[in-house]
Nucleic acid binder design. Structure first.
Lengths: 310, 310
DNA sequence: AGGCATCCATCAATATTTCTTCTGGAGGAT
DNA sequence: ATCCTCCAGAAGAAATATTGATGGATGCCT
């Protein structure tokens, strides 16, 4: 059953004539006859009484006409809903990110995004480290926000945020105020290390020269715990500046750049290259960029971008 | 847009795979791809994200899926309603008949019919004489009940009721109890005649030998008026026995057969030969026959009977 | 009544659409 | 690396729709 047949049928009903309907349907009269014949066969009933020169609806025809109207109305509503989607995106976007990102990066991005796309629901999939990448690869999340670098040919990576990992010391600690610290400065101090993740790995490299001599008192896996433990004087640790801005400016915690080069931490937005970015998704990418103040970058086209191997 | 495409689309959604849907739709996979491609073109959107080996619905696809479900459900309901129609006819039948028929013939037929087809509404088009025939010819009425003979090649005529026209005299009148009366017996009596119609014409023929000598005091066009006028002693008249059964059996009116041959009045059910008789219509014809006790006659087949010239 | 115009059904030829088969590229699993 | 699965594309085949011509029936007009 073709919706065209329904339209034809209703035109006949409206005009009470096959041949008149043929004109408004831009077909010939035999074509109309054929369509109705087929419709009647499919429904296994007669829709029209052929009374000499005139036609009239049968009871079945009248009943079917009502349904046909509804079906076509539904068809129009479907098209309208889809068209509306272009203008006012709706639906949901799933963002995978680790806890710290959720707390320190997403709020700003989200509030901006919500203004622009009030009908798009943002769902956060709080995931750790590599699980962010995996969630995006598995299409469980539309986007991921994670620490760079990410080495996945299938993923598009967009730098959105630059941060710096610094040494955290309790307020008033002798190292506070230093221009930078070196691994050897930490000898004799209690050290708290993040348990896992990219930052941990990078710190291991940085600390390598003196690693065996260090006094690593604890391994923690929560930003919040690290801050509280440092403030409590239980040791020194490392954290991205954006994750402890408040505590630093209020003097509760001191942060000292690592040396000889500051340890830069870059966050990136990642998504599958073969993902077709909806209006909302595109808006999210751009909103994320704008919020991070990283300027405009090239975004792969909206429609179906197949992986090309970069 | 073909409903087949919608079914295919929903199968893909259900099975999350083009090739699996191909199996349940008894098609090859490229055919499925083509259907979806066409659907996407017609809707001017993408319905699926092609993510490497896997696919997933786009937002538009999800919205369209809901509508597609509804459309197919509506399609099913339409079919159900039509099928139901076969089992439990509904709708309406328009019966054209003159007043007397309405009063003395239809009630019995209708009550029987309503038991069998409670969902079919019977509408009575109270019409006079030839207007009954015309209403049926114009398809303003599905059936007509009228006095025979009817000479219309386009109409199917079914005899349903045999009646007799008799002379009506007030109770106690000298002519009451006569085995039959002849036109000459009416000389010197006040005569009330029906104003129009077949009966009037036949009476005119019967009365012809003495017509000029008759004292025709009134012409009436209502069965009820004729009876009351006769009972009031205002004259003698003529009526079908079935129209005055009560008054006769209670002795208020006497009825005397006409001579030399009783004047037989035959009622017939008429309908267009090219009318496709619905279950309900067929039921009405048979019910009418049964009620009239005329036995079973041949009814033209249910489906579209074209006029063949009898 | 006869002639003309209209209406729908039917038929054969053609045009179009929609399948199927075969093929290819990409991705994932072993 | 290799095999398997998945979807997309091209070409030929099959099915389907459309057209134009025709015919029967009807209604209208003279």
């Amino acid at each position: 059953m073709d919706l065209d047949q329904l339209h034809t049928f209703l035109e006949i009903v409206r005009l009470k004539s096959f041949s008149k309907a043929a004109q408004t349907c831009y077909r010939t009269q035999p074509a109309i006859s054929a369509q109705i014949r087929q419709l009647e066969q499919e429904l296994n009933t007669t829709l029209f009484e052929r009374l000499g020169t005139r036609i009239s609806l049968t009871v079945a025809g009248r009943i079917f006409a009502e349904h046909a109207e509804q079906i076509l109305a539904l068809r129009r509503r479907a098209q309208d809903a889809i068209n509306e989607l272009e203008k006012v995106p709706r639906g949901e976007l799933v963002i995978a990110a680790n806890e710290a990102t959720c707390i320190y990066v997403l709020p700003g991005v989200f509030s901006e995004f919500k203004k622009q796309f009030p009908n798009v629901q943002l769902l956060v999939d709080r995931a750790y480290g590599t699980r962010v990448v995996q969630a995006v690869l598995d299409n469980l999340a539309d986007f991921g926000i994670t620490q760079l670098p990410v080495q996945e040919k299938k993923l598009q990576v967009v730098k959105i945020h630059t941060d710096e990992i610094r040494l955290l010391v309790p307020g008033g600690h002798p190292l506070e105020g230093r221009e930078r610290v070196y691994p050897s400065d930490l000898l004799g101090e209690q050290i708290l290390l993040p348990k896992t993740g990219t930052t941990r790995a990078r710190l291991a490299v940085w600390l390598d020269p003196v690693f065996d001599e260090l006094n690593i008192s604890m391994e923690l896996d929560s930003t919040e715990m690290i801050k509280r433990f440092v403030m409590a004087g239980l040791g020194l640790s490392f954290l991205a500046v954006s994750h402890c801005r408040e505590e630093v400016s209020s003097g509760k915690i001191g942060s000292v750049p690592l040396g000889p080069e500051p340890m830069i931490r870059r966050l990136g937005l990642i998504y599958r290259k073969d993902k077709s970015l909806s209006k909302a998704a595109l808006g999210f990418v751009q909103g994320t960029l704008a919020n991070a103040g990283s300027g405009i970058i090239e975004i792969p086209a909206l429609q179906r971008v197949r992986a090309t191997g970069d």
